[in-house]
């Protein structure tokens, strides 16, 4: 399990990283925390000719809490994102999702951006990004562009990122509704394993407990993490009674196209999708002070 030979560049700025990517083209890979990349390189499943190390670029490590959004630098360690209280009060779903990402040890090294560009369809951070409609800022030598999550995730381990681009930062929208709650859950064989199915939800309620804003999604049951804006809209104006939640969750499950593997058949995944969708909606409602 030694990786195939590669060149290594420690970039000292975003510009130098982008320049290296432009020069090298398709066969270059950015390395940040390396929690996914290093194992697949060791198994020689990927063989980059050049590794561009962005760990020393300070400009990629920050958490900036702003009025409508929180901006997080791509190379910010997951552990720092998880522990940031100001962030947790604005985008609470991130802390919830991160509790399921690997283990404490891997989160100390793994980065927010690394997980998002890796784009594993069952990974937690891509699902959170999809559900909340996060925006990805992509930088290249010729400038920057911003893509919404729904445009960004295009397939399993595939994103709309061009080979010359580096993910620079991720913008997470802040919900201003006072009664907002969110929840994240998943089923994996062991804690920290790739989820068979994951589910995330964020809701806002009015004073009477009526749902005024809703977003939810499912991971591990499609080519990308899935958000269900149309189904979420069916929750609006309701008090999230049993029948509504169940029907929305079942419809979401029915829209999934899961695959089968050693640990879960498509049927099992689809079943879990319905169960977990209902659970996260209910849990988010409770977090928002509703229900009961």
């Amino acid at each position: 399990m030694k990786s195939a030979p590669f060149e290594y560049l420690r970039a000292d700025s975003i510009a130098s990283a982008c320049e290296a990517l432009r020069r090298e083209g398709d066969s270059a890979k950015i390395i940040a925390g390396g929690q996914s990349l290093v194992p697949i390189m060791a198994m020689r499943l990927v063989r980059p000719s050049l590794l561009v190390d962005i760990n020393e670029i300070a400009a990629l490590k920050f958490i900036a809490v702003e009025r409508d959004a929180v901006r997080i630098g791509a190379c910010t360690r997951q552990a720092l994102v998880e522990r940031d209280d100001a962030l947790a009060s604005r985008v609470p779903l991130l802390r919830q999702a991160l509790a399921w990402v690997g283990h404490v040890q891997t989160r100390n090294r793994g980065t927010l951006g690394g997980s998002i560009v890796h784009a594993d369809p069952c990974a937690e951070l891509p699902l959170a990004a999809q559900v909340l409609g996060a925006k990805m800022v992509l930088r290249s030598s010729s400038g920057a562009r911003t893509l919404a999550a729904e445009e960004f995730f295009t397939g399993p381990m595939v994103t709309a990122t061009d080979s010359s681009e580096c993910l620079e930062e991720v913008h997470w929208p802040v919900w201003s509704e006072p009664r907002t709650g969110c929840a994240f859950t998943e089923i994996a064989n062991r804690h920290g394993d790739f989820a068979m199915v994951s589910a995330a939800c964020q809701l806002a309620l009015d004073g009477e407990g009526r749902c005024v804003r809703a977003a939810f999604g499912l991971g591990g049951v499609g080519q990308t993490p899935l958000a269900f804006p149309r189904l979420a809209a069916r929750l609006l104006g309701t008090k999230l009674d049993e029948a509504v939640v169940k029907s929305v969750a079942q419809d979401a499950a029915a829209q999934t196209e899961p695959g089968s593997d050693l640990f879960a058949t498509a049927d099992y995944r689809r079943h879990l999708a319905g169960v977990l969708a209902a659970r996260v909606i209910r849990a988010a409602q409770e977090k928002a002070g509703g229900g009961k």
């Binding site: 198994m43 283990h103 064989n189 062991r190 804690h191 920290g192 394993d193 790739f194 050693l262 640990f263």
Partner: peptide
């Protein structure tokens, strides 16, 4: 958790710690 599973075509399907599942402190 643990099984060295084989596919019908004779390949070991759980040859890494991603799929050969040793219980951790969490389990």
């Amino acid at each position: 958790y643990e099984k060295f599973a084989y596919t019908e075509d004779g390949q070991l399907a759980s040859g890494t710690f991603m799929d050969y599942l040793i219980p951790s402190a969490m389990e």
